[in-house]
């Protein structure tokens, strides 16, 4: 099955960032396809390479980057939501790209299931 994923909450603040990642990873392991992960609202903060959690904590941003590198998952950050929160190309972590909300709607059209992780 082809999944579209939407992440609406910031990392370390809300579990939805973790749940979305775990869902994506599990789906890929089961042979499903992740069409796209779209980051919106405070979810755009999942994409900043300035993130430096303590060493004994999970690195949410690098985890996404690794998913993109290993499985070619398309990680898209909303341009408008990103600009509001200071997420721009200069501080974007590897594997992410910035684009418009149309990418979210398109993912809803193309994917078999759209799964929203939010509050």
């Amino acid at each position: 099955m082809k999944f579209g994923i939407m992440v609406n909450e910031g990392p370390y603040n809300h579990q939805s960032a973790d749940s979305a990642y775990q869902f994506a990873k599990a789906a890929i392991e089961k042979g499903h396809e992740i069409h796209r992960v779209f980051f919106y609202h405070d979810g755009v903060n999942n994409a900043t390479k300035l993130t430096e959690p303590p060493q004994d904590d999970r690195h949410i941003v690098n985890r996404w980057s690794k998913l993109a590198e290993e499985h070619g998952v398309d990680l898209v950050v909303c341009v408008a939501a990103g600009l509001r929160r200071g997420i721009v190309d200069e501080n974007l972590a590897a594997g992410f790209r910035i684009s418009g909300l149309g990418q979210l709607v398109e993912s809803g059209i193309q994917a078999d299931r759209m799964v929203v992780f939010g509050d």
Binding site: V76, V79, G100, L101, G102, Q103, L104, V105, I109, Q110
Partner: peptide, 16 residues
């Protein structure tokens, strides 16, 4: 085009 994520709707042939 920017707000729609660079997707040109006229070329979206899926029609879904």
């Amino acid at each position: 085009t920017e707000s729609t994520g660079g997707i040109d709707m006229d070329e979206d042939s899926s029609g879904t």
